[in-house]
């Protein structure tokens, strides 16, 4: 048997965004940032368990709704209450 004919099926996985799909579909409550109130402290960014908040160049947080599960942590940790959780529209 020649090496050229040979390949293995190994239990090896590659890093991917969305390894289990778009977890945004899990969401029941949706976080909405009030950018007027936001002080760009970054607490929501560091505590989001789903890495679904990005900080832009100027540290403005931006929620990635493709993956945000709507846990509400960002809203809970925000010191100025700039993030509101709103019920998702069903359907």
């Amino acid at each position: 048997m020649e090496m050229a004919d040979f390949f293995h099926i190994m239990p090896v996985s590659k890093p991917s965004v969305g390894a289990v799909g778009k977890t945004g579909t899990w969401r029941v409550f949706k976080p909405i940032i009030d950018h007027e109130k936001c002080t760009r402290c970054g607490l929501c960014w560091i505590y989001c368990p789903d890495e679904s908040i990005e900080l832009k160049e100027d540290d403005t947080p931006k929620i990635n709704y493709d993956f945000c599960k709507g846990c509400g942590i960002c809203s809970d940790v925000c010191p100025v209450k700039a993030i509101k959780m709103e019920a998702e529209e069903i359907g």
Binding site: P15, S16, V17, G18, A19, V20, G21, K22, T23, W26, T39, R40, C41, G42, L43, W45, I46, Y47, C48, P49, D50, E51, S52, E54, L55, D59, N64, D66, F67, K69, G70, C71, G72, I73
Partner: peptide, 30 residues
């Protein structure tokens, strides 16, 4: 600015979005 900025954490992600931990999982944050 922020307290978080002072912590000097990288914006690079090593835990990628789209994992399957439950809502609000502490282990994922850790």
């Amino acid at each position: 600015m922020s307290a978080v900025r002072n912590l000097g954490l990288t914006k690079e992600r090593f835990l990628l979005p789209g994992h399957s931990a439950c809502h609000g999982c502490g282990l994922a944050i850790n």
